[in-house]
Simulated scan of single mutants.
Amino acid sequence: MTLPVLSKENIQLNQKVETKENAIKMTGELLVARGYVQPSYIDKMLEREELTSTYMGNFVAIPHGTEEGKQSVNESGIAIIQVPEGVEFGTGNVVKLLIGIAGKEDEHLDILSQIAIVCSEEENVEKIVAATSAEEILELFEGVN
C-alpha cells in the first residue's frame, strides 16, 4: 500500500522546539514514524543543514536529506510541524513552519515546487501557522499529491 504524500497524520500542531537541530530531528522523526524514511535519513537531514540552510524565508524551513540520503527514503512524503513561538534557524531567521520532505528519485523536486507555490504567499504561511486543525493545513496543500 502506498502512503499518501501528505495526510493529517503527517501534521503536528503547536509544537515547541528550542534549537534548529531539534527542529530538524523532530521533523525527521515524524517522517520515520509515518514510514516514509529509515532513521538514517535524519542524519542526512542534519548534514544537509550544515551544507546549506534549509531556511526559505517567510518563517518557513524545508529540512530534507542530502543526495546520499535518498537511499534511506522508502516513499515520498511530507511532514509539517507548526511552531507558533518560532525557532531560530541562524541569526535572525525565525521559523514557525517546518516542512520536512523525503522524495524518491526526482519526486522531491515536484514536492518542493508545490510547497514553494503555497509558501510563497505570506498569507498562506500565516494561515498555516495560525491553523488550529490539520484539516485546515491540508486544505491549503490540496494541490500537493
Rank of each mutant, 00 (worst) to 15 (best):
A116Q: 02
G65L: 12
I115G: 09
V125C: 06
Q114M: 11
G57P: 02
G77F: 09
G57I: 02
V60H: 05
E68H: 04
E88V: 07
L112E: 00
Q114N: 15
C119K: 01
N58H: 06
I99K: 00
A116C: 12
S76L: 14
N58W: 00
E68Q: 15
G92Q: 08
T91S: 15
Q71T: 14
E68V: 03
I80E: 04
V125W: 03
I78M: 10
L109Q: 07
N124I: 05
L98F: 01
Y55P: 05
S120N: 13
A79C: 01
E122T: 12
G86N: 04
V125K: 02
I62L: 07
G69S: 08
K70H: 14
H108I: 03
I80C: 06
V129N: 02
S120C: 06
H108C: 10
K104D: 02
V129F: 02
A102K: 06
H64K: 13
A61C: 10
I80V: 13
Y55E: 02
L97W: 08
A102M: 07
S53L: 07
V129H: 05
G69D: 14
E123R: 13
M56N: 06
Q71K: 15
I111L: 15
V129E: 01
E105L: 03
M56A: 09
I81A: 02
I115T: 09
L98G: 04
F89M: 08
L98D: 04
V129W: 05
A116N: 07
E126C: 04
E85L: 08
A116K: 01
V83P: 02
E68C: 01
V118W: 09
V129A: 01
G92N: 08
E123D: 14
E105C: 00
G65W: 13
T66L: 01
P63F: 09
G69N: 10
G77C: 12
I111R: 06
D110I: 11
E88D: 12
N58F: 00
